[in-house]
Protein backbone atom coordinates (compact mmCIF):
# COMPACT_ATOMS: atom_id res chain seq x y z
CA UNK A 1 0.00 0.00 0.00
CA UNK A 2 1.25 3.43 -0.99
CA UNK A 3 0.53 6.28 1.44
CA UNK A 4 1.67 9.77 0.51
CA UNK A 5 0.98 12.65 2.85
CA UNK A 6 2.02 16.21 2.14
CA UNK A 7 4.73 14.99 -0.24
CA UNK A 8 6.73 17.69 -1.98
CA UNK A 9 9.78 17.50 -4.18
CA UNK A 10 11.77 20.67 -4.76
CA UNK A 11 14.87 21.06 -6.92
CA UNK A 12 17.28 23.89 -6.88
CA UNK A 13 18.16 24.88 -10.42
CA UNK A 14 20.52 27.83 -10.86
CA UNK A 15 19.61 29.36 -7.50
CA UNK A 16 15.92 29.05 -8.18
CA UNK A 17 13.77 26.55 -6.34
CA UNK A 18 11.62 24.44 -8.62
CA UNK A 19 8.66 22.56 -7.14
CA UNK A 20 8.10 19.36 -9.08
CA UNK A 21 5.64 18.14 -6.44
CA UNK A 22 3.65 20.15 -3.93
CA UNK A 23 1.75 18.77 -1.00
CA UNK A 24 0.58 15.51 -2.58
CA UNK A 25 -1.77 13.39 -0.45
CA UNK A 26 -2.76 10.08 -1.94
CA UNK A 27 -3.33 6.49 -0.90
CA UNK A 28 -3.10 3.66 -3.40
CA UNK A 29 -4.32 0.28 -2.16
CA UNK A 30 -2.88 -3.05 -3.14
CA UNK A 31 -4.25 -4.24 -6.48
CA UNK A 32 -5.36 -0.77 -7.52
CA UNK A 33 -5.01 0.44 -11.11
CA UNK A 34 -4.18 4.12 -11.25
CA UNK A 35 -3.42 6.38 -14.20
CA UNK A 36 -1.48 9.62 -13.76
CA UNK A 37 -2.37 12.26 -16.33
CA UNK A 38 -1.41 15.83 -16.88
CA UNK A 39 0.60 18.14 -19.11
CA UNK A 40 4.39 17.88 -19.43
CA UNK A 41 6.15 19.10 -16.31
CA UNK A 42 3.11 18.58 -14.13
CA UNK A 43 5.04 16.16 -11.89
CA UNK A 44 3.66 12.80 -13.05
CA UNK A 45 7.04 11.20 -13.55
CA UNK A 46 8.47 12.69 -10.37
CA UNK A 47 5.54 11.25 -8.44
CA UNK A 48 6.13 7.86 -10.05
CA UNK A 49 9.87 8.01 -9.17
CA UNK A 50 9.05 8.91 -5.57
CA UNK A 51 6.63 5.96 -5.37
CA UNK A 52 9.40 3.75 -6.78
CA UNK A 53 11.93 4.95 -4.19
CA UNK A 54 14.17 6.24 -6.97
CA UNK A 55 13.60 9.79 -5.84
CA UNK A 56 13.19 11.11 -2.31
CA UNK A 57 10.55 13.66 -1.25
CA UNK A 58 11.98 16.87 0.17
CA UNK A 59 8.92 17.33 2.38
CA UNK A 60 6.07 15.20 3.66
CA UNK A 61 6.16 11.47 4.28
CA UNK A 62 5.90 8.43 2.08
CA UNK A 63 4.93 5.14 3.67
CA UNK A 64 5.24 1.98 1.64
CA UNK A 65 3.43 -0.97 3.21
CA UNK A 66 3.50 0.92 6.49
CA UNK A 67 7.23 1.59 6.36
CA UNK A 68 8.45 5.16 6.33
CA UNK A 69 10.68 5.37 3.22
CA UNK A 70 12.51 8.54 4.27
CA UNK A 71 14.18 6.71 7.15
CA UNK A 72 15.69 3.97 4.97
CA UNK A 73 19.37 3.82 4.06
CA UNK A 74 20.45 3.71 0.45
CA UNK A 75 21.03 -0.04 0.57
CA UNK A 76 17.62 -0.58 2.18
CA UNK A 77 16.07 1.44 -0.63
CA UNK A 78 17.84 -0.83 -3.13
CA UNK A 79 16.37 -3.78 -1.30
CA UNK A 80 12.86 -2.27 -1.53
CA UNK A 81 13.24 -1.57 -5.25
CA UNK A 82 14.55 -5.05 -5.86
CA UNK A 83 11.73 -6.91 -4.14
CA UNK A 84 8.65 -4.68 -4.06
CA UNK A 85 8.77 -2.56 -7.17
CA UNK A 86 8.93 -3.16 -10.88
CA UNK A 87 9.66 -0.39 -13.38
CA UNK A 88 8.56 -0.16 -17.00
CA UNK A 89 9.96 2.73 -19.04
CA UNK A 90 8.88 4.48 -22.20
CA UNK A 91 12.24 3.70 -23.83
CA UNK A 92 12.32 0.11 -22.50
CA UNK A 93 15.85 0.44 -21.03
CA UNK A 94 16.99 -2.98 -22.09
CA UNK A 95 20.76 -3.44 -21.96
CA UNK A 96 21.68 -3.68 -25.66
CA UNK A 97 24.54 -6.15 -25.31
CA UNK A 98 22.48 -8.68 -23.35
CA UNK A 99 19.99 -11.11 -24.88
CA UNK A 100 16.29 -10.97 -23.95
CA UNK A 101 16.62 -13.79 -21.43
CA UNK A 102 19.72 -12.16 -19.88
CA UNK A 103 17.90 -8.84 -19.57
CA UNK A 104 15.00 -10.55 -17.82
CA UNK A 105 17.43 -12.36 -15.51
CA UNK A 106 19.20 -9.15 -14.48
CA UNK A 107 17.15 -8.43 -11.30
CA UNK A 108 17.72 -12.01 -10.17
CA UNK A 109 21.47 -11.60 -10.63
CA UNK A 110 21.37 -8.50 -8.42
CA UNK A 111 19.30 -10.44 -5.88
CA UNK A 112 21.74 -13.35 -5.81
CA UNK A 113 19.56 -16.05 -7.37
CA UNK A 114 21.58 -19.02 -8.65
CA UNK A 115 22.54 -19.08 -12.33
CA UNK A 116 20.50 -22.19 -13.20
CA UNK A 117 17.35 -20.89 -11.53
CA UNK A 118 17.79 -17.49 -13.14
CA UNK A 119 17.70 -18.87 -16.65
CA UNK A 120 14.79 -21.19 -15.88
CA UNK A 121 12.67 -18.45 -14.35
CA UNK A 122 13.60 -15.92 -17.03
CA UNK A 123 12.56 -18.35 -19.78
CA UNK A 124 9.27 -18.98 -18.01
CA UNK A 125 8.66 -15.25 -17.76
CA UNK A 126 9.36 -14.80 -21.47
CA UNK A 127 6.96 -17.63 -22.18
CA UNK A 128 4.29 -15.80 -20.18
CA UNK A 129 4.71 -12.65 -22.29
CA UNK A 130 4.70 -14.77 -25.44
CA UNK A 131 8.35 -14.30 -26.38
CA UNK A 132 9.90 -17.71 -25.64
CA UNK A 133 11.25 -17.90 -29.19
CA UNK A 134 12.98 -14.52 -28.82
CA UNK A 135 14.89 -15.55 -25.69
CA UNK A 136 18.35 -15.35 -27.26
CA UNK A 137 17.72 -12.29 -29.38
CA UNK A 138 19.37 -8.97 -28.63
CA UNK A 139 17.15 -5.89 -28.10
CA UNK A 140 18.10 -4.55 -31.54
CA UNK A 141 16.82 -7.75 -33.12
CA UNK A 142 13.25 -7.46 -31.80
CA UNK A 143 10.43 -4.98 -32.33
CA UNK A 144 9.51 -2.19 -29.93
CA UNK A 145 6.41 -4.01 -28.73
CA UNK A 146 8.46 -7.13 -28.08
CA UNK A 147 11.13 -5.09 -26.29
CA UNK A 148 8.50 -3.63 -23.97
CA UNK A 149 7.12 -7.08 -23.22
CA UNK A 150 10.68 -8.22 -22.37
CA UNK A 151 10.93 -5.19 -20.09
CA UNK A 152 7.64 -6.14 -18.41
CA UNK A 153 8.91 -9.68 -17.90
CA UNK A 154 12.01 -8.18 -16.29
CA UNK A 155 9.97 -5.81 -14.10
CA UNK A 156 7.86 -8.65 -12.74
CA UNK A 157 10.49 -11.38 -12.44
CA UNK A 158 11.05 -10.68 -8.73
CA UNK A 159 7.25 -10.84 -8.17
CA UNK A 160 6.93 -7.24 -6.94
CA UNK A 161 3.75 -5.87 -5.35
CA UNK A 162 3.78 -2.68 -7.40
CA UNK A 163 4.38 -2.09 -11.08
CA UNK A 164 5.18 1.48 -12.10
CA UNK A 165 4.96 2.24 -15.80
CA UNK A 166 6.10 5.57 -17.25
CA UNK A 167 4.41 6.04 -20.65
CA UNK A 168 4.76 2.33 -21.46
CA UNK A 169 3.13 2.71 -24.87
CA UNK A 170 4.65 6.10 -25.71
CA UNK A 171 7.14 4.64 -28.21
CA UNK A 172 4.83 2.01 -29.68
CA UNK A 173 2.36 1.84 -32.53
CA UNK A 174 -1.25 1.32 -31.49
CA UNK A 175 -1.29 -2.44 -32.15
CA UNK A 176 1.80 -3.21 -30.03
CA UNK A 177 0.58 -0.64 -27.51
CA UNK A 178 -2.65 -2.56 -27.13
CA UNK A 179 -0.76 -5.81 -26.53
CA UNK A 180 1.38 -4.15 -23.86
CA UNK A 181 -1.64 -2.62 -22.16
CA UNK A 182 -3.42 -5.97 -22.20
CA UNK A 183 -0.39 -7.57 -20.60
CA UNK A 184 -0.19 -4.92 -17.89
CA UNK A 185 -3.89 -5.24 -17.14
CA UNK A 186 -3.62 -8.99 -16.94
CA UNK A 187 -0.92 -8.60 -14.30
CA UNK A 188 -3.14 -6.13 -12.45
CA UNK A 189 -5.96 -8.62 -12.57
CA UNK A 190 -3.63 -11.08 -10.81
CA UNK A 191 -3.33 -8.61 -7.92
CA UNK A 192 -0.40 -6.43 -8.88
CA UNK A 193 -0.79 -2.74 -8.04
CA UNK A 194 -0.46 -0.86 -11.34
CA UNK A 195 0.40 2.82 -11.67
CA UNK A 196 0.66 4.17 -15.22
CA UNK A 197 1.82 7.59 -16.34
CA UNK A 198 0.23 8.43 -19.67
CA UNK A 199 -0.68 11.21 -22.06
CA UNK A 200 -3.25 9.09 -23.77
CA UNK A 201 -6.80 9.67 -22.36
CA UNK A 202 -7.99 6.42 -23.94
CA UNK A 203 -5.40 4.50 -22.00
CA UNK A 204 -6.07 6.44 -18.77
CA UNK A 205 -9.77 5.73 -19.16
CA UNK A 206 -9.07 2.00 -18.76
CA UNK A 207 -7.74 2.54 -15.19
CA UNK A 208 -9.89 2.22 -12.10
CA UNK A 209 -8.84 5.69 -11.00
CA UNK A 210 -7.36 8.64 -12.84
CA UNK A 211 -5.30 11.31 -11.05
CA UNK A 212 -5.07 14.56 -12.98
CA UNK A 213 -1.99 16.59 -12.18
CA UNK A 214 -0.95 20.18 -12.78
CA UNK A 215 2.00 22.17 -11.41
CA UNK A 216 3.03 19.41 -9.06
CA UNK A 217 -0.38 18.92 -7.50
CA UNK A 218 -3.13 16.40 -7.93
CA UNK A 219 -5.93 18.69 -9.12
CA UNK A 220 -8.63 16.15 -9.81
CA UNK A 221 -9.43 12.51 -9.12
CA UNK A 222 -11.97 10.78 -11.31
CA UNK A 223 -12.97 7.19 -11.94
CA UNK A 224 -11.69 5.65 -15.15
CA UNK A 225 -15.24 4.80 -16.17
CA UNK A 226 -16.21 8.47 -15.83
CA UNK A 227 -13.37 9.54 -18.13
CA UNK A 228 -14.39 6.81 -20.52
CA UNK A 229 -17.93 8.18 -20.70
CA UNK A 230 -16.67 11.73 -21.23
CA UNK A 231 -14.45 10.54 -24.07
CA UNK A 232 -17.30 8.60 -25.60
CA UNK A 233 -19.59 11.60 -25.42
CA UNK A 234 -17.07 13.93 -27.07
CA UNK A 235 -16.57 11.36 -29.84
CA UNK A 236 -20.28 11.23 -30.42
CA UNK A 237 -20.37 15.02 -30.49
CA UNK A 238 -17.51 15.14 -33.00
CA UNK A 239 -19.25 12.61 -35.17
CA UNK A 240 -22.49 14.62 -35.13
CA UNK A 241 -22.62 17.11 -37.97
Amino acid sequence: MIELSGVGRAYEVGGEVLHALRDVDETIDSGDYVALMGPSGSGKSTLLNVMGCLDQPTSGTYRLDGREVGSLTEDELSEVRRHKIGFVFQSFHLIPRLSAVENVALPMMLAGVSVAERRKRALEALETVGLAKRADHRPNEISGGEAQRVAIARATIMRPAILLADEPTGNLDSASGATVVALLEELNAQGLTLVVVTHDPNMAARAKRVLLMRDGRIVNRIAGSELSETLHRSKVLEATP
Binding site: L54, D75, S78, R81, I95, P107, L110
Partner: peptide, 16 residues
Protein backbone atom coordinates in the same frame (compact mmCIF):
# COMPACT_ATOMS: atom_id res chain seq x y z
CA UNK B 1 24.74 6.27 -17.67
CA UNK B 2 21.22 4.99 -18.53
CA UNK B 3 22.40 1.48 -17.76
CA UNK B 4 23.59 2.62 -14.34
CA UNK B 5 20.20 4.24 -13.75
CA UNK B 6 18.47 1.04 -14.80
CA UNK B 7 20.61 -1.10 -12.50
CA UNK B 8 19.70 1.20 -9.65
CA UNK B 9 16.02 1.00 -10.53
CA UNK B 10 16.30 -2.78 -10.56
CA UNK B 11 17.66 -2.66 -7.04
CA UNK B 12 21.45 -2.71 -7.46
CA UNK B 13 23.28 -1.60 -4.32
CA UNK B 14 26.11 0.92 -4.31
CA UNK B 15 28.52 -1.95 -3.77
CA UNK B 16 27.19 -3.77 -6.83
Amino acid sequence: TPEVGLLKALGATRFQ
